[in-house]
């Protein structure tokens, strides 16, 4: 799978010869990525944004991921939507352990990704301290468009068989914007 570049997963080869060629892993990944059953582990305000994404206006069903299964044993994707407290961490790990392979995890929002602004005794500083994470979606909360981007990133990673954790990047900024942001950041960080 190493020769496949980002976002250019090619499942079927061949041509006009009347045959189609593929690799077993590529076909399997293609089948898996469009039939994701999700387990929403919604604990905080990000849950509202998750419901919005799942409802008809943004319609997550377009991406083959519309079926929520409220049993971890029947689901493929664990959406961790919101802050995870230290007290809740055992529950989260138990839910993850109950899911059957293959399974993926999406950290929805800044709190699930790195603890957010909760820097205290009560909050887990990012769920990857407890369970492995595939995609982290930043935002407080992320917009539904960002969530759909994160889902598409996960589907792309499933197609490629890539299990390294990845954070959803911002879309490309206009010319000169990055330099301006960097300058602003330097000014802000001055003591």
């Amino acid at each position: 799978m190493a020769d496949v570049t980002h976002l250019e997963t090619r499942t079927l080869g061949g041509g006009e010869s009347g045959f189609a060629t593929t690799k077993f892993e590529a076909l399997l990944g293609w089948a898996r990525k469009y039939s994701l059953f999700q387990y929403p582990f919604a604990t905080a305000c990000c849950g509202m944004e998750f419901f919005s994404t799942a409802s008809p206006r943004y319609d997550i069903a377009r991406f083959g991921a519309e079926a929520p299964r409220f049993s971890p044993r029947q689901s493929d994707v664990l959406w961790v939507v919101g802050t995870i407290s230290q007290r809740q961490a055992p529950v989260l790990r138990r839910v993850y352990e109950q899911m059957t392979e293959p399974k993926w995890v999406i950290a929805f929002g800044t709190c699930a990704s790195c603890g957010g602004f909760y820097d205290n005794y009560a909050t887990v500083p990012g769920i990857d301290k407890v369970i492995p994470v595939d995609v982290m979606i930043p935002g407080c909360p992320p917009r539904p468009e960002a969530v759909l981007d994160g889902l598409m990133l996960l589907q792309d990673k499933i197609g490629r068989g890539d299990r390294t954790p990845e954070t959803l990047k911002n879309t490309a900024l206009p010319d000169g914007a990055e330099e301006a942001l960097e300058k602003l950041y330097q000014i802000r960080m001055k003591p």
Partner: peptide, 9 residues
């Protein structure tokens, strides 16, 4: 990235 160094814990 794109989490800034002072964002989150």
């Amino acid at each position: 990235g794109p989490f800034l160094q002072d964002e989150g814990m």
